[in-house]
């Protein structure tokens, strides 16, 4: 608990909620995994936005496209132990749990899990290392995007994360870093706010104790 600043955690929670993210807490990775499996179980079936020949199709969804029968959770960047826990929870509920091959499911998956490198309290933002294409896709093509953020990794504001962002871009390899603040949104029609135009319909952030 040494590096956790409760005020920053509270501020992060408030600001993330303002932009429509759902913030929950978990004491351990195992608890986080259970939360993900529960979220997947209680959501509406994922709509297939494009053709996916091998997918078993259910009834039409609200947007008049077929839905996915076997639910998919993707968690490409979890370590073996955490992925194992999640896969076990998913299997028990009859969901597929994958960590690669997301391009086969570009029509849409149910839940995508990724870890945040850090959080920015002032704006409720998560910084996600998505150099790996699978991780990036997990945060893009899922109907519910779940980000796991350690409480101790919450910083105050954007200027204070310059060094961390620089570190992402100084590995000698190409990188792709995302700041994610709430779900995908638009106000392009009559300035009316609408969620989920391209990416996730929901963003959940699991604040993890250290």
């Amino acid at each position: 608990m040494s590096n956790v600043n409760p005020e920053l955690v509270e501020l992060f929670r408030t600001k993330a909620a303002v932009v429509g993210a759902k913030v929950v807490e978990a004491a351990s990775m195992a608890e986080a995994a259970r939360y993900v499996a529960d979220v997947c179980a209680s959501k509406d079936p994922c709509e297939l936005l494009a053709d996916e020949p091998d997918a078993e199709q259910g009834p039409l969804g609200p947007n008049k496209v077929p839905t996915r029968v076997k639910r998919i959770v993707a968690a490409p960047d979890l370590d073996a132990a955490a992925f194992g826990a999640l896969a076990g929870d998913c299997e028990a509920k009859g969901f597929a749990c994958i960590r690669e091959g997301l391009r086969k499911h570009l029509a849409g998956i149910d839940v995508g899990v990724a870890q945040a490198v850090l959080g920015v309290a002032d704006s409720g933002t998560c910084m996600v290392n998505s150099d790996d294409e699978e991780t990036r896709l997990a945060t893009m093509i899922s109907e519910i995007s779940v980000l796991i953020l350690h409480k101790s990794a919450i910083r105050k504001d954007l200027p204070s994360i310059a060094a961390d962002l620089r570190a992402q871009q100084s590995t000698g390899k190409p990188s792709y870093t995302a700041f994610i603040t709430g779900p995908s949104r638009t106000a392009d029609i009559e300035r009316v706010s609408a969620i989920g135009v391209h990416g996730p319909l929901e963003l959940h952030i699991i604040l993890l104790e250290d």
Binding site: V19, D131, D157, Q169, Y176, T177, T181, G199
Partner: peptide
């Protein structure tokens, strides 16, 4: 990062937009 404190606030009165993507180099692409 400094400009990001003003750009979304001025554009759409947001603290920050939903996404800021930093693309640094030609990474993996299946």
């Amino acid at each position: 990062l400094n400009a990001l404190l003003v750009l979304p606030r001025n554009a759409t009165a947001q603290m920050l937009t939903s996404y800021v993507s930093w693309m640094d180099g030609a990474g993996p692409c299946a």
